[in-house]
Simulated assay, not measured.
Amino acid sequence: MAGFIVKLIVCPLTVIAASFLFPNVQYSAFYQPVIIGLILAAAAHMMEIFLLREETTIISTVLDFFAAALIVYVASMFFVGARVTFFGALLTALLLTITEIIQHRWLIQSGRTRKSPTES
């Protein structure tokens, strides 16, 4: 649960930062990158529940990158006035992946990814 709470804060802030850093990531209203960030947080948390283990860290991180790029690119199309190029979505996903690497290390080192024998 702590990982999800961190994601609820970090993902929207990262998308907001990307909109200021990259000229090809533009949102017309403040709520737009926040909503995208919340969608990303939920998706990343679900991916961690199903995929993240000590032995699958690299695979999980790579999948996080591709999922983030796709979500940022597609979800931005649903907002009036938002303009995000595919390259902008890739750059945003790169920023998000950097934060995910840090979070994955923290989750694994703290033992929060261990599953009980009855869970798969």
Rank of each mutant, 00 (worst) to 15 (best):
F79E: 07
A67T: 09
H45A: 10
V62R: 00
E48N: 15
V62P: 07
F86I: 14
F79M: 03
A75P: 05
V72P: 05
F65H: 03
T56K: 13
R83P: 01
L51Q: 03
M47A: 15
A67Y: 06
Q32L: 08
S60K: 05
M47P: 05
Y31P: 05
T92S: 14
H45L: 04
A68S: 14
P33C: 06
S76A: 13
F78A: 10
L51P: 11
I36Q: 01
A75G: 05
V72T: 07
A69S: 09
E55Y: 12
F66S: 05
M46Q: 02
A93T: 11
I102E: 02
H45S: 10
E48Y: 13
T97M: 10
Y31W: 15
E55N: 13
L63T: 08
S76E: 06
I102H: 00
I36T: 13
L63Q: 06
H45V: 05
A43F: 14
G88D: 08
L38Y: 04
I98M: 13
G37V: 04
A43K: 03
I58Y: 13
P33K: 02
T92E: 09
E100H: 03
T97H: 00
Q32N: 03
T61M: 13
F50E: 07
A68G: 06
V80L: 14
A93S: 13
I102M: 11
P33D: 05
I39P: 03
H45G: 13
R53V: 11
P33M: 08
V62G: 08
T56D: 11
I71G: 08
F30L: 14
A69D: 04
L52V: 09
